[in-house]
Structures are given as structure tokens and as C-alpha cells.
Design a protein around this nucleic acid. Structure first.
Lengths: 155, 155
DNA sequence: GAGCGGCTACTCGGATAGCCTATGTCCGAGTCAAGACGG
DNA sequence: CCGTCTTGACTCGGACATAGGCTATCCGAGTAGCCGCTC
């Protein structure tokens, strides 16, 4: 179980988009800022656009800009935009298969194993939703040079 | 990001192992109980044995038995036994690469993005560690027929 | 000089290969138990 | 009748194919701005 690295790319890129100001920035520039594959970052940005986290501007001088302030973007938004909303633990209902499944009556309630795993997953989701990108930006702003460096890198 | 289905197999199998009593049960029987691939379930059981959650008994009439009561086995134990202890979010330190990396001084503290993701992951771990397999067993015991069915399926 | 049309270049967007891990399978080493044999 | 040895079958254990999804790439559709032309 490993999270797609596109999540890391998306998080840093969203933070960079905020520090450059409101104007759209091309995926090529954003990729160059961190030495990433431009085409693949573009794919991730499209996922963010579908999730309405960024707005894509076509044509020359186009690119991507934030759709809303960082205060309104949580870690959960980004993870779900890239990874999708499917559950991490996917119950295949093996309790209904095999000998035990044949001997058991059709189940009435939910699978207890699945319920337990969902509780943990919910805690994960809540912890992700409790942190906004603005919180991370605040931590980055402890070294005030960051904003200047990002702007000069994305001029 | 999808959890390995071996975790689901392992959880149900550990619960079944408990309901049969203390004697060792072969991986073939355990697989037949839920219609699983015997060889692949055996692989998962080996992972559980390495993590000291079950004890393997070689030879005829051998198999696997629980190494400790379900009260002492948490969901986190099972997940880490199957999935490993590597972090879900793996920071590749892209902040040190590309234009921004070249313009920035060597970082002093930890990556803020990584720290935020780790906080969420820690919440997940805590939620997993807070639930033991005995809790799930208690939920299953609400329908008292389960234990009888499991025992007759694994006779 | 002002307005308009065409063109170019740059951007996003989706369709297309490659690789790596999870999945699934197979066969060999080890071990216990039963059965045959000898005392 | 009892003890011991041999044999057999059954189990775990790890090494070997396979597949699905993440990773990476490329090319086409669309658009804004610029340049030249015309009035």
C-alpha cells in the first residue's frame, strides 16, 4: 500500500501556485520548479482540475490557477482528487464464500471486519480533512525567503 | 492506493483460527473455509508467522495456530504484518530538486508537506491500534451460530 | 491611422507504451504417524 | 507381544510466472495574441 507520488507533486504544486499570485502558470514551468516530468505533472493537474481545485486556462499565456484559496483546500481534497474516492480497504465479502459462506444464512448486517477497517479509515479521512494547505503554507512561511524563491523560479 | 486483499484474508482467517480452538489448522482448510487460493493464503500466513501473530506447526496434522489471544492482536499488527511497516506517503524531497531546490538553501527542518501527511497517517495507525480482533469477535458473537458454523466448516 | 483577417505559437487534453509491485502458482525440504518387521 | 525401523503422506516454506495499475510519454484540439493587409 503506497500512495501515488502524484499526491506529493500536487501538494507542492498547489502551494507554489498560491505563492506566485493569481495568474495562471503553465504545467511546464510548474514541473521545472521541482524537476518533475512535465507531461505527468500535467496529468495530475488535470485530475485537480476535474476536482475543481484548480482552473485550467487554455491558449498561450494559459496554464493553471487555484480555484479557491488554500484555506478552502484540505489534504483530503487533494488525496481524493489524485487517488480517487474508492475505499482503501475493499471488502470482497469473503464471509459469503467457501464452506463458511455456504453454511451461513445470508448475512443481515454489515461485515464486522469491514466496519472496523472503515472506522480506522474514517479517522484517516478526518485527519486529512482537518488540515488545510493554508496550514502548511503557514509552516513554510517561517522562513520568509521561500515566497521570493518560488516567485523567482516561476517568474 | 488500495490495500492488499491479503489483509482481509488474514483478518478473517485469524478470527476463524480463534473460533476453532487451540489446535493447528492447515492453510488448505483455512482457504477452503472462504473459497480462497490455498497457496496465496499460505503466503499470507507465512507473513503472519514472521510477525509472530501465528505459530506454524510443520508435518502432518500441522498447520497454524494463534500465537496469542485475540485481545493482544490489533488491526495495526495485521496490517503491518501483511503490508509492511513502510510509510504510505513516501516523501521524495522534491523540494530540494529543480529550480526551487537550486535556489533554496539546504533545508534545516523536515518537509512541511511530509509532516502533515504523517500526522494523518499517525491518526490512521492509532485508530487501527485501538481496535483488537477481540472487538470484532465480540461483534460477530451477536449471532451465536457463527462459532458453530466455523467449527463445522473447519472440523 | 484604424480596423479586420489570417497565421503562428503556445497551452491543455486525452490516447498510448513501459515498468514495478501485488497477485497467483508451483515444487521441494522437513516432519510426524502409521505400518511392517524382527526380537 | 513389544520395540524399532522404514516408508509414506501431509505440512510448511520459498522460488517462479502473471496481471493490473501507477508511471511516463507523445501527439492532437483549441485558443489568444501578433502581424500584415486593406480601407
Amino acid at each position: 500500500m503506497r500512495m501515488a507520488k502524484g499526491v506529493e507533486w500536487a501538494l507542492h504544486t498547489l502551494l507554489n501556485l498560491d505563492m506566485t499570485g493569481g495568474g495562471p502558470v503553465g504545467s511546464g514551468q510548474l514541473a521545472e520548479a521541482h524537476g518533475l516530468s512535465p507531461s505527468y505533472l500535467n496529468k495530475q493537474l488535470q485530475q485537480l482540475a476535474r476536482a475543481r481545485l484548480v482552473v485550467s486556462v487554455p491558449g498561450p499565456r494559459g496554464g493553471f490557477r487555484l480555484a479557491r484559496p488554500l484555506e478552502a483546500i484540505t489534504l483530503l481534497d487533494v488525496v481524493e482528487a489524485i487517488e480517487g474516492t474508492a475505499e482503501v480497504f475493499h471488502c470482497t465479502e469473503i464471509r459469503c464464500s467457501g464452506k463458511i459462506g455456504e453454511l451461513s444464512p445470508p448475512p443481515t448486517g454489515a461485515c464486522a471486519v469491514n466496519a472496523a477497517m472503515r472506522r480506522a479509515e474514517q479517522a484517516y479521512h478526518q485527519a486529512l480533512a482537518a488540515q488545510s494547505l493554508a496550514d502548511i503554507r503557514a509552516e513554510l512561511d517561517r522562513s520568509p525567503a521561500v515566497r521570493r524563491i518560488v516567485r523567482s523560479a516561476l517568474n
